[in-house]
Amino acid sequence: MTRTVMCRKYKEELEGLDNPPYPGPKGKDIYDTVSKKAWQEWTNHQTMIINEKHLSMMDPKTREFLQSELQKFMDGGDYEKAEGYVPPSK
């Protein structure tokens, strides 16, 4: 049976992650409140931000910035977007 969570991004019961994405309390919180769908969208978005802004994951400030953006993304805040990106039409 598939594990479901009340996704904080979509405000509905959706399939949950298979494992916490990080160790510790932050990973547990994400595991308990973020769906696979929302997490996949975040990882795609995060990749675009890293590439667009030429960020280095070795820089602690970059990691702090991305954690802040993750919170905004999941909680419906005004998060950073890649400049000029136009999502593909369906």
Rank of each mutant, 00 (worst) to 15 (best):
F65M: 14
D29Q: 13
Y85M: 05
D59H: 02
E64Y: 06
G84K: 05
K37V: 12
M74L: 15
E15K: 13
I49Q: 05
P25L: 11
S56N: 13
D75N: 15
M1V: 08
K61F: 09
I30D: 00
P87V: 04
E13R: 14
I50Y: 03
L14K: 13
F73H: 03
D32N: 15
H54L: 09
W42F: 05
K61W: 09
D29V: 08
Y85A: 04
Y79H: 13
K11A: 15
Y79V: 01
E13V: 07
G77T: 08
K36S: 12
K36R: 14
K26G: 00
P20F: 00
A82R: 13
N44V: 05
D75Q: 14
E83C: 00
Y10F: 14
E83K: 11
Y79D: 02
D59K: 08
I50G: 04
D59Q: 01
I30C: 03
Y10C: 11
L17W: 02
E69N: 11
A82F: 02
E41A: 13
P23F: 04
K36A: 12
V34L: 02
Y31D: 01
N19R: 13
V34F: 04
T2P: 15
E12C: 13
H45E: 00
P23R: 08
L66N: 06
W39S: 01
K81Q: 10
F65S: 04
K26N: 04
V5I: 10
E52S: 15
M6D: 10
Q46L: 10
G76M: 09
K53Q: 14
T43R: 09
T43Q: 06
P21K: 01
M74H: 10
M6L: 12
P21D: 02
T43N: 02
V5T: 09
H54C: 10
G16T: 03
T62S: 10
Y10V: 01
R3P: 03
D32R: 06
F73M: 05
M6F: 14
M57L: 15
Q67M: 07
S56R: 12
D78K: 11
R63P: 08
M57K: 12
E80L: 14
K28C: 01
T62E: 11
V34A: 09
K81H: 04
I49N: 06
L66A: 06
T33M: 04
D18V: 07
Q71I: 09
D32Y: 03
K81W: 01
T43H: 05
H45K: 00
L14D: 05
G76L: 05
P25Q: 10
G24L: 01
N51C: 07
L66D: 05
K26H: 09
E13P: 07
T2C: 06
M57Q: 05
K9W: 01
G16F: 03
E52D: 15
G76T: 08
K11E: 15
D29W: 12
K26W: 01
T43S: 08
Q46A: 00
N19H: 11
M48W: 06
V5G: 04
N51K: 15
E52L: 04
D75F: 13
R8A: 04
G27C: 01
S68A: 11
P87G: 05
